Simulated assay, not measured.
Amino acid sequence: MIAFSLGFLFKIIWLLGALTVIQIFSKKRDHKDFKKVIITAWLVFLISLFLIVVSSLDLIALMSGNIKESVGVCQVYVPEPTAKGSEGLEIVIDSLRLSGGVNDFPYVKEGTYQCNVKYLPYSKIVIEFVKE
């Protein structure tokens, strides 16, 4: 839950940063990189806004207990660790693709299992994985 909250806070900081850049550069129209900066800042703003909306919807679903659940044959893919650290694992149930953190589920190994998975409805992030 803490990681979820920190991610949400990070997205809000990006949103506010983009708005600040737009505000500062909108007054400097004669700057040589005016168009590039404004277009980039608007792009960051729109992406941040989208991510905040998705995170908010997931947070509302998590708090109200409207978590999706899927049961079936899971194909789990775990990427090789890189120098930057572990990447997220991918879980496929039928045509549903879900993602989760390797550190959140250290007991999950690559393979095919009968499983029960609970996940957030909008971002499709796994919050509980149970092998049956």
Rank of each mutant, 00 (worst) to 15 (best):
I2L: 11
A3N: 11
F4I: 02
S5I: 15
S5R: 11
L6I: 13
L6C: 05
F8I: 04
F8L: 10
F10T: 09
F10H: 07
K11A: 13
K11D: 14
K11P: 03
I12Q: 06
I12M: 10
I13L: 05
W14Q: 04
L15F: 15
L16S: 04
L16F: 10
G17I: 05
G17K: 04
A18D: 02
I22N: 02
I24L: 15
I24S: 03
I24T: 11
R29A: 09
H31Q: 10
K32D: 12
D33L: 12
K35D: 14
K35H: 13
K36V: 12
K36D: 13
V37F: 06
V37H: 02
V37T: 11
I38A: 04
A41G: 10
L43I: 13
V44F: 10
F45W: 08
F45Y: 12
F45I: 04
L46T: 10
F50C: 14
F50G: 14
I52L: 15
V53S: 14
S55K: 04
S56T: 15
D58G: 01
L59I: 14
L59N: 11
A61Q: 03
L62R: 07
M63N: 12
S64T: 15
S64V: 05
G65D: 08
G65V: 03
G65E: 01
N66M: 08
K68E: 15
K68D: 14
K68L: 09
K68N: 14
E69M: 09
S70V: 00
V73C: 03
Q75R: 06
V76R: 04
V76K: 05
Y77I: 02
Y77M: 05
V78R: 15
P79Y: 03
P81Q: 11
A83S: 14
G85S: 07
G85H: 08
G85P: 13
S86T: 04
E87W: 13
E87I: 02
E87V: 03
L89K: 01
E90C: 06
E90R: 10
I91N: 00
V92K: 09
V92F: 09
I93V: 14
S95P: 00
L96P: 11
G100F: 04
G101D: 06
G101R: 02
V102G: 05
D104F: 01
D104Q: 09
F105G: 01
P106C: 01
V108Q: 03
K109F: 00
K109A: 00
E110N: 10
G111F: 06
T112Y: 04
T112M: 01
Q114T: 15
C115I: 06
C115F: 00
N116K: 11
N116I: 13
L120R: 08
L120M: 11
P121S: 02
K124C: 13
K124F: 15
K124V: 08
I125Q: 08
V126T: 06
I127V: 14
F129C: 00
V130E: 09
